[in-house]
Amino acid sequence: MLSPFRSFVRSPRLGRLIATHSSVNPDEISHFSNLSAHWWDEHGEFEFLHKMNPVRMTFVRQKLLEAARDDGTDPNPAQVLANLDVLDVGCGGGLLSESLARLGANTLGIDASEKNIGIARQHASTDPRLAPTSPHSSLMYQHTTAEALLEQPKQFDVVCSMEVLEHVDNPASFLSTCAELVKPGGHLFLSTISRTPLAYFLTIFMAQDVLRKVSPGTHTYSKYIKPSELIQFFETYRPPTPPAPVPSLRESVTLADSLTSSARPWITRHSDTYLPRTQVDVRGLIYNPVFGNWHLAPKDAWGSLECNYIFWVRKPKEIDS
């Protein structure tokens, strides 16, 4: 049922931006900073997230594999993430980032909470495969925000932001920031909670108030976002024209990219009931309280998008054919 969040705040040095364009909510940051010591307790506050992680990873691998096959390549299913540049926005203690890095992705985890980044680095350092001293390590953490990364020219093959969207103040600005960080032809993965009575009942009433599995204050109902709203956003989304909402230092090359990529919206729908398979997918994440595990709902399963869900959208390639 719930998933705690990953948060997202501006580092002090970016403080001047907070008043203007930040989607980060300072209260959210301090909430998660206070819980940061519990990130790696698999039976504690973040148990739901630990259990959800394999299911999220399964979805990510599945979509990348499908996309690669659509592109006409035949990748080794075990190495579909290998050598991709992946950004994990709101990485928290690094649950998802570690998994991505183990599968060979050059992973950058960012979080607005310095404490979270500290925990994530410390945890990775105990794992010989991930430790920064290891020659195989492909995992980096940085205390920063997505907006701040936009100021650099780098874009990513895959951008993930799991259980973050329901914690940000300005979701539209946050989404466009994430979108701009994706390379043309790259992938954006989001998971969050829908704004439905069921979601309220499960993630706030049960999880926080009754079962106390999640700290009160973790979730705010009004911040929840419906899948249809995400789909609508990417149907109408156009990259910000030249100077992005955040003063941009990006090079002209990247600007050109975004101009060409605007040739078509990310999602082109021809009917209300059909989602183009090669552009977008949304699947419910269902928690089974009896077995204490999550699973990915089958496509289009009735009612499966009423609570937690995961969303994938692919950025159009340059000069769309």
Binding site: E42, H50, K51, N53, P54, R61, E98, R102, L103
Partner: peptide, 16 residues
């Protein structure tokens, strides 16, 4: 399966 999901194979969650 845990390896394919990028999990830490020593973790409780992966072995459950």
């Amino acid at each position: 399966n845990a390896i394919l999901q990028g999990s830490d194979v020593g973790s409780y969650t992966a072995l459950q």
